[in-house]
């Protein structure tokens, strides 16, 4: 009887018999395979969760610590520093000229940060090179005026409770895209709990859909 005939006649029964008859020492090969699988799985899984975010983002400390809470307390609101200009454009991060409305090159407080600000920037008439957590890429046109004035939104909806912070967290920059981590969000899966946890296009679209009934057209933002 040829091998082929054997197989067709007995189907898989032959195979099962063959397997059962195999040398028991072959089981260690399978066992090692399982161990290798588990080890590789764990290494990759843990690296993907723990190491990958560290590698993907570079961290930068702000030039010096900024106490938002203190400034809000002193000035009363966000708009004293982050205001809409007459032409509708948004001032964003204040320029030195705005700081000088209150500050001088004499430190106003005792902190080391105030001393750095006064000596390194005010005295030397240099702008502070702040890292901007919420910086959107150049391909996006975003109008603060449309959101604050027309839609009556508050700062917290997108920026969270940054106004209550007393220290500046490090700025994290995606090494691949150059974007701030705040755009994707702290959660590496991009899962968000609060409206301010992510600032990607989908987040704009979701809110637009809820508020206006339409997620918006490409050209509204990508001009």
């Amino acid at each position: 009887m040829s091998e082929l005939e054997n197989k067709t006649e007995h189907g898989s029964v032959d195979g099962a018999t063959e397997g059962a008859a195999e040398d028991p020492k072959n089981d260690t090969g399978l066992g090692l395979g399982v161990i290798f699988f588990i080890v590789a799985f764990l290494i990759c899984f843990l690296s993907g969760w723990l190491l990958f975010p560290k590698l993907l983002y570079s961290k930068h400390e702000q030039p010096f610590n900024f106490d938002h809470a203190l400034h809000v307390q002193e000035t009363g609101d966000c708009e004293s520093c982050h205001f809409l200009r007459d032409d509708g454009t948004f001032s964003g991060i204040p320029k030195m000229a705005s700081c000088l409305d209150c500050h001088t090159d004499e430190p106003m407080g005792e902190t080391r940060d105030e001393a750095i600000f006064a000596s390194e920037y005010v005295a030397k008439e240099r702008e502070v090179p702040w890292y901007v957590y919420a910086k959107q890429p150049d391909c996006v046109f975003f109008s603060h005026a449309a959101h604050i004035e027309a839609a009556g939104m508050d700062c917290v909806t997108c920026h969270g409770h940054i106004g209550e912070s007393t220290t500046s967290r490090p700025y994290e920059e995606n090494r691949l895209t150059g974007y701030s981590r705040d755009i994707w969000g702290k959660n590496i899966w991009g899962i968000k709990k609060n409206s301010w946890d992510r600032m990607k296009m989908d987040d704009c679209a979701v809110c637009h859909k809820e508020e206006t009934g339409h997620q918006g057209y490409c050209f509204q933002c990508h001009k």
Binding site: G29, L30, V39, C44, W49, F52
Partner: peptide, 18 residues
């Protein structure tokens, strides 16, 4: 089989990581 296990483990580990 060990290498197969290694490879599959790595793929599976990465697949359910972000």
């Amino acid at each position: 089989r060990s290498f197969l296990g290694l490879g599959l483990g790595a793929v599976a580990g990465i697949a359910i990581s972000p």
